[in-house]
Computed example of a mutant assay.
Amino acid sequence: MAQRRRREPEEVRPPADPEAAAREICLRQLTLAPRTRAQLAEALARKAIPEEVAELVLSRFTEVGLIDDEAFAQAWVRSRHNGKGLAPRALSAELRRRGVADETVREAVADLHPEELAEAARALVARRLPATAGLDPARRTRRLVAMLARKGYSPGLAYQVVREALADTAEDEPPFPDDP
């Protein structure tokens, strides 16, 4: 069996015109998907763009509205909450990993109303409930609550929603026939 040679990482040299290169890198990144200022700064650093040039380009992009962490955070929260059912805790962690400031994160997740969160949790449990059929109630509860916890829901809301769903399921199931 032939061994693969590991390629050594190539040294990244600063470009001849760092400002033009920085603008091109940022535009390319923003064309692919919305990015935060921190994500773009990271991309520029990987390409050996000097820090002062990166700051200059990022400031200009922010000034003209191409970089807007507040809009990014709000769109991210809506998208991930509606698409994946994520709750504020999980959404906050994702935004912080993308370099969004704490205050911006707090404002973005504050837009989610408790009724929205409860409804999303109910939808997640309803979707997962059939897969837990046949398990004893304690195990079923643990699995469903754990799923909601991974999505960032508070323990109180998770237990409440799971209790309601299991109570509704028990009412829908036909009683066992009497043994002769």
Rank of each mutant, 00 (worst) to 15 (best):
Ile49Pro: 14
Leu166Arg: 13
Ala120Lys: 10
Leu135Lys: 13
Asp179Trp: 06
Glu103His: 05
Ala118Tyr: 05
Asp111Tyr: 03
Glu116Asp: 14
Asp69Tyr: 04
Val77Asn: 06
Arg46Lys: 10
Thr31Tyr: 13
Arg13Phe: 13
Val12Lys: 10
Leu117Val: 04
Asn82Phe: 09
Ala38Tyr: 11
Gln29Val: 04
Pro130Ser: 05
Val105Asn: 08
Pro14Ser: 14
Glu8Gln: 08
Ala138Phe: 08
Pro15Trp: 02
Val105Gly: 05
Pro15Cys: 09
Arg89Pro: 02
Glu103Ser: 08
Leu44Asp: 12
Phe176Ala: 14
Ala2Thr: 02
Val57Trp: 04
Ala71Phe: 03
Cys26Tyr: 01
Pro88Gln: 04
Ala21Asn: 11
Glu63Lys: 01
Arg78Ser: 14
Arg128His: 10
Ala165Asn: 05
Ala75Tyr: 02
Val105Lys: 06
Arg96Thr: 11
Leu58Gly: 09
Glu11Tyr: 00
Arg150Thr: 10
Leu32Trp: 13
Asp136His: 07
Pro15Thr: 07
Glu63Val: 00
Ala54Gly: 15
Arg4Thr: 01
Leu112Arg: 01
Gln74Lys: 05
Ala120Glu: 10
Ala16Asn: 02
Val145Glu: 11
Asp17Cys: 02
Phe176Pro: 06
Ile49Tyr: 13
Ala121Trp: 07
Val100Cys: 04
Arg142Pro: 00
His81Gln: 08
Ala101Arg: 14
Glu164Tyr: 02
Val161Trp: 08
Glu103Ile: 04
Leu166Ser: 06
Leu117Ser: 08
Arg6Ile: 13
Asp111Ile: 02
Glu63Phe: 09
Ala87Thr: 01
Val53Arg: 12
Met1Tyr: 04
Val64Phe: 02
Asn82Ile: 06
Lys47Ala: 15
Phe72Ile: 04
Glu115Ser: 12
Glu10Leu: 11
Glu8Gly: 02
Ala101Ser: 11
Ala123Pro: 03
Ala38Phe: 11
Glu52Trp: 00
His81Leu: 00
Arg96Glu: 13
Arg60His: 12
Thr132Ser: 11
Pro177Leu: 10
Arg97Cys: 07
Leu44Arg: 11
Lys151Gln: 11
Trp76Ile: 00
Ala16His: 06
Leu58Tyr: 06
Leu56Met: 04
Ala38Asp: 11
Pro174His: 11
Pro137Ser: 02
Asp168His: 08
Phe61Pro: 00
Arg6Lys: 12
Leu135Tyr: 08
Ile67Asp: 10
Gln3Gly: 03
Thr31Met: 07
Pro155Ala: 09
Ala38Asn: 06
Arg46Gln: 13
Arg23Asp: 08
Gln3Arg: 09
Gln3Leu: 08
Leu157Pro: 08
Arg127Ser: 12
Glu63Gly: 06
Pro177Gln: 09
Ser92Lys: 07
Cys26Met: 07
Pro50Gln: 07
Gly152Asp: 09
Ile25Glu: 14
Phe72Glu: 08
Tyr153Val: 02
Arg37Asn: 10
Arg143Pro: 00
Val53Ala: 12
Ala48Gln: 10
Ala90Asn: 05
Arg46Gly: 12
Arg37Ser: 13
Leu135Cys: 02
Glu19Ala: 15
Leu144Phe: 10
Arg35Asp: 10
Gln160Glu: 14
Ala108Glu: 04
Leu66Met: 14
